[in-house]
């Protein structure tokens, strides 16, 4: 996983309220995002995650507070630059596919940025190669699986070589195979290009693999930390309407039963390894 770099995005006391709503959808939120990290944002339905993502992309503007992207404040003037820095992949694979074919769709962002055609062709090719979709250049969207469409969406973002990619529940409509494909693609981009990933998700197993996690509750940051720190909260998380990954649950039940496991376990592997070690000691 990527090592923590400098601060790339910074939120300072950001507040946002939708017209006609009583509560702030995002309520005095402050945190930092570091270059090259994988940050998972979790929280119950309506906790303000998508609103936060839209604020980061300048699709909404805060009522008060500031968002800094590479030390520049996100305003109406800087928003178009920021959108080139921060790419976003949405939840529904169908509703973000603009082009009539795969390559047209990847080119859409480049066309908007006014990139010359020659360069566009190489960039589209490269991006599709990166997400392993280069054999589908002229395919139409309704002939692609959900996972393939999401990979095309990622290619569309990658073609613009942003520093940050936000995934707003981008894997939630996919089957396990499609989900794995997409996550694998993103992980590879992180390693090869050092992009920063912000992944908004309901899948805590996915979040457990992040470098850092932020738990949102009713529009505010409830807790920020490494997945290990976060999952130590167990009961609290459940009371916030979140589930807990199976290995974490199992490991804590085992500890309750008096089995001497030293720590919590985020993945099946960790748990299995520790158990094997324990058995070999007996």
């Amino acid at each position: 996983m990527g090592e923590m770099g400098e601060t790339i995005v910074k939120l300072e006391q950001v507040v946002f309220k939708y017209d006609g709503q009583e509560r702030n959808a995002v309520d005095h939120v402050s945190f930092e995002i570091f270059e090259g990290e994988w940050l998972a944002i979790v929280g119950h339905n309506g906790s303000g995650k998508s609103t936060l993502a839209k604020l980061l992309n300048g699709l909404l503007f805060p009522e008060s507070g500031r968002i800094l992207v590479k030390e520049k404040e996100l305003t109406e003037e800087t928003v178009w630059d920021v959108r080139r820095q921060i790419g976003m992949v949405f939840q529904n694979p169908d509703n973000q596919f603009v082009g009539t074919t795969v390559q047209d769709d990847v080119a859409f962002g480049l066309e908007n940025a006014g990139i010359p055609r020659e360069e566009m062709i190489t960039r589209v090719g490269d991006a599709l190669h990166k997400v392993n979709m280069d054999q589908f250049l002229n395919q139409e969207p309704h002939h692609l699986s959900g996972g393939q469409k999401q990979r095309v969406a990622i290619a569309g973002v990658v073609a613009l070589s942003p520093s940050v990619i936000i995934l707003d529940e981008s894997t939630s409509m996919l089957d396990p195979k499609g989900r794995e494909e997409v996550l694998e693609t993103v992980r590879m981009l992180m390693e090869e290009r050092g992009v920063t990933v912000i992944s908004i998700t309901h899948d805590l197993e996915e979040a457990a693999r992040a470098d850092r996690m932020i738990v949102m509750n009713q529009g505010s940051v409830y807790k920020e930390g490494t997945p290990k720190d976060i999952f130590l909260l167990e009961e609290e998380l459940i009371s916030l309407g979140l589930d807990i990954p199976f290995p974490v649950k199992l490991s804590s039940s085992l500890r309750e039963q008096g089995i001497e496991l030293s720590q919590i376990h985020l993945t099946d592997e960790e748990l299995v390894n520790d158990l094997c070690e324990l058995i070999s000691k007996m």
């Binding site: 699709l59 178009w80 959108r83 949405f90 603009v98 908007n112 613009l160």
Partner: peptide
């Protein structure tokens, strides 16, 4: 929203 986020203006 997706189009705007992808820089369409």
């Amino acid at each position: 929203v997706a189009m705007e986020s992808r820089g369409y203006r």
